[in-house]
Computed example of a mutant assay.
Amino acid sequence: MGGLRNHLKQLRSDAGMTQAQLAAAVGVSRKTINTIENRVFVPSTVLALQIAAVLKVSVHDVFELEEE
């Protein structure tokens, strides 16, 4: 199985939000958002849903499975 690709940085930027603003909105640190954007950390399902809700997009718009 492949990894998890994400479009978080682009979607966050499109929404006019900084990492710190998004982090505050979902209750995590800015570093957590940074590590998700850089594919170091895979968020929990709950966090992924919260991020998508704040950005007003679907989870599938933010995250997608990579093919092997």
Rank of each mutant, 00 (worst) to 15 (best):
E67L: 05
Q50H: 08
M1I: 07
K56F: 06
G3P: 00
D14G: 09
L11V: 11
D61Y: 09
S13G: 10
L47I: 12
L49Y: 12
T35R: 07
E37G: 02
S13W: 03
V26W: 03
L11D: 13
S13Q: 13
D14E: 14
M17K: 14
V54R: 15
I36G: 00
A15K: 13
A23H: 09
R39C: 09
D61M: 02
L65M: 09
K9W: 02
V59W: 04
Q50N: 12
T32P: 00
A25E: 10
K56H: 15
T35C: 03
I51M: 09
E67S: 05
V57F: 05
N38E: 04
A23E: 14
L47V: 11
S58M: 04
V46P: 08
L49M: 14
A20L: 13
H60A: 15
G16T: 06
M1S: 15
A24K: 15
F41Q: 10
F63N: 03
T18I: 02
V59Y: 04
N6I: 03
N34E: 12
V62F: 08
Q10S: 14
L47F: 02
S13V: 08
H7W: 01
A48R: 08
S44D: 02
R5F: 14
Q10T: 14
A20I: 12
E66R: 00
L55A: 06
V28E: 11
M17P: 00
N34K: 14
G3Q: 09
V46D: 10
S58P: 10
E64N: 02
L4H: 01
